[in-house]
C-alpha cells in the first residue's frame, strides 16, 4: 500500500507479513498529512454543492411541496426503509423554503470556510437529507458530492483558504500542525476515487457498446451530452468513435490502478483532474466529472 506522506514521517517498518501489512495500513491512514489539499477540495465541493442545490430551487415546491409531485408518503415507499430526510418534516411551503435556504447557507459557509468543523458535517447531513427527500431525482454527481462532503466532515477542511484561517491569523493563532485526521480524509478520497472508477468500469463492461466501440457515439448524441460538436467527426470516422470509447474505459482502468502505484500516482491524479471533467462532459454529467476530479485533487497537488 502506498503512503501519501513524506518518507521522513514514516515509522520504521516491522518485519513479517502481518506486521508489514499493519505498518502499511498505519502509514497510509495515520501518517500526519498537510490539510491544504483538503481545503482546496472543500472549495470545489462546496461550489458543486451550490450548483446542485440550485438545480432544485426553481422546482422545490413542485417536487416536495404539499401539492408537489413527490409527496413524502410516496417517497417513503420508494426509498429504502432506513432512508431518512429532515425535509420530510418540512410539511408547509414556508418550512420547506426555510430548510432549503438554510441548506444553501450552509453550503455557502462551507465555500468560504466559516466554522468549518461544524458546517462540514452539517452540509453532509443536509445534502443526504435532500437526496433522500427525492431519491428518484438523484444522479451520479449527487452521489459523488455526498461522499466528498462526508470526507470533508472527517478532516480539518477549513485550515487554509478560509474565513476560519483569516480569523485565526487575526487572533494570532498559528497554523496547526499536520495531523492524522487530514490523512484519514485524503485516504478516503483516494479509496473512493478508485471505488467509483472500478464500479463504473464494471458496469460499462457489461454493455456491448463498450466492447464494440459504439458507446462514445451514443454518449455524444445523447440528450445531455456537452460534446455534441463531436457528432460530425464521429459520423465520419468509426475509428475515432472506437478510440474515444476505449479511451474512456482505458482511462478509468488506468486511473483506478495508477492511483496506487507510487511512481505514477501523482501523474495519474493530475491526468484525472483533466480526464474526469472531459468524461463528465461527454456523458452529459459535467458535475459528476468535476466531483471525480476533486477526488484526485489531494494526490495531484501534493508536494
Amino acid at each position: 500500500m502506498n503512503t501519501r506522506s513524506s518518507d521522513a514521517a514514516r515509522p520504521p517498518s516491522s518485519t513479517g507479513g502481518i506486521a508489514a501489512v499493519g505498518d502499511a495500513w498505519n502509514r497510509f491512514w495515520f501518517s500526519p498529512a498537510d490539510s491544504q489539499p483538503l481545503s482546496l477540495v472543500r472549495i470545489g465541493a462546496a461550489a458543486i454543492a451550490l450548483a446542485a442545490w440550485w438545480s432544485y430551487a426553481a422546482d422545490l415546491q413542485a417536487w416536495f411541496g404539499p401539492a408537489g409531485v413527490l409527496p413524502a408518503d410516496t417517497v417513503r415507499e420508494w426509498r429504502p426503509p432506513t432512508g431518512f430526510s429532515l425535509f420530510d418534516w418540512a410539511v408547509t411551503p414556508l418550512a420547506l423554503n426555510a430548510l432549503f435556504v438554510a441548506t444553501g447557507v450552509v453550503f455557502a459557509l462551507l465555500l468560504v470556510g466559516f466554522a468549518t468543523p461544524v458546517v462540514a458535517p452539517l452540509a453532509a447531513v443536509l445534502w443526504a437529507s435532500l437526496l433522500h427527500r427525492g431519491p428518484i431525482l438523484a444522479g451520479p454527481a449527487d452521489d459523488g458530492l455526498s461522499i466528498l462532503l462526508w470526507c470533508l466532515a472527517i478532516g480539518p477542511a477549513g485550515e487554509y483558504v478560509s474565513l476560519d484561517r483569516w480569523l485565526a491569523n487575526r487572533a494570532g493563532r498559528p497554523v496547526p500542525a499536520a495531523g492524522w485526521r487530514a490523512s484519514i480524509s485524503e485516504g478516503l478520497l483516494q479509496v473512493h476515487a478508485t471505488a467509483i472508477a472500478v464500479g463504473a468500469v464494471l458496469a460499462q463492461l457489461k454493455g456491448d457498446v463498450w466492447w464494440n466501440g459504439l458507446a462514445a457515439w451514443y454518449l455524444v448524441t445523447g440528450p445531455r451530452s456537452g460534446a455534441a460538436g463531436l457528432v460530425p467527426l464521429l459520423e465520419r470516422s468509426e475509428y475515432l468513435t472506437n478510440l474515444l470509447t476505449h479511451g474512456v474505459t482505458a482511462f478509468e482502468i488506468l486511473f483506478a490502478i495508477g492511483m496506487w502505484c507510487g511512481p505514477t500516482q501523482q501523474l495519474v491524479a493530475r491526468v484525472g483532474l483533466v480526464g474526469w471533467p472531459l468524461v463528465g462532459l461527454l456523458a452529459g454529467e459535467p458535475l459528476w466529472g468535476l466531483a471525480m476530479a476533486l477526488f484526485a485533487l489531494p494526490l495531484a497537488v501534493r508536494r
Binding site: W127, S146, V198
Partner: peptide
C-alpha cells in the same frame, strides 16, 4: 451495512454505465 450506510447516502454501487445504447438510455 445498509441500515447505517443508507441514511448518510453512502450505500452506493457506483454502477455508472453512462450508456448501453439501449431504450433505457434514451431521452
Amino acid at each position: 451495512f445498509s441500515p447505517w450506510m443508507v441514511p448518510p447516502w453512502l450505500d452506493l454501487g457506483f454502477d455508472y454505465r453512462l450508456t448501453y445504447g439501449s431504450d433505457e438510455d434514451g431521452d
